[in-house]
């Protein structure tokens, strides 16, 4: 694989990542490549690049390689990297930013976690239409879309058991003031960007 290494970090991908990460300065420029993040990550073994490696790639301007990486999708949001980072880099938040960018650029499809955004999208579908999440619908739709066989297994074992124990609804619940929520979300999306 040939990669064009960028010789200057400005003004591009590197800045976009910082700009699109809300919550104050994510301190990305402070990375000393110590690997505390990669060492701490519970799903690090399944990632094609450790977070540390991704940060070096971002610095080198390897936008496409970064957004094709499965790493952000394997992030479980445990925040171990973030509390342990000696430079206080907002690593988990940056992972979310990379997920959003990968969706926007469509590059997630080329990663080995190509179905991950689908799960988030299904989840959001319920939230945007009901104001609440809906576990049965979520699991069923997600699995029907990606793993039909799993869906049947889920429905026949775990799903049934959850239903039997009163731990799952058959229909979603809707909040009362759904129009209000819709207006808020519509406006938020219209403001655009990410912050």
């Amino acid at each position: 694989m040939e990669t064009n290494l960028q010789t200057s970090r400005t003004p591009t991908f590197y800045d976009e990542v910082i700009r699109d990460t809300p919550g104050g300065d994510p301190n990305l420029e402070m990375c000393i490549q110590c690997g505390t993040c990669g060492g701490s990550c519970p799903s690090g073994a399944d990632m094609d690049h450790t977070p540390r490696n991704l940060f070096a790639m971002i610095n080198a301007g390897m936008k496409e390689d970064v957004l094709r990486s499965n790493s952000p999708w394997y992030c479980v949001s445990c925040y171990y990297c973030m509390v342990r980072c000696p430079q206080e880099i907002h690593i988990t938040d940056i992972m979310y930013t990379l997920k959003r960018m990968a969706i926007k650029e469509g590059l997630y499809r080329e990663s080995s976690a190509s179905e991950a955004p689908g799960f988030s999208e299904t989840f959001i579908h319920y939230v945007e239409n009901y104001g609440r999440s809906f576990e049965l619908g979520l699991a069923t739709w997600h699995h029907l879309r990606y793993h039909p066989i799993n869906a049947i297994r889920m429905a026949s074992t775990m799903g049934l058991e959850l239903l039997r124990k009163g731990r799952m609804d058959l229909t979603p619940t809707r909040i009362k003031n759904m129009p209000q929520l819709k207006k808020i979300l519509k406006k938020a999306k219209a403001i655009g960007g990410t912050t």
Binding site: D20, R100, P117, S120, T194
Partner: peptide, 8 residues
């Protein structure tokens, strides 16, 4: 999930 799709 939502933060992975649209932060704002």
């Amino acid at each position: 999930e939502y933060f992975a799709i649209d932060a704002l």
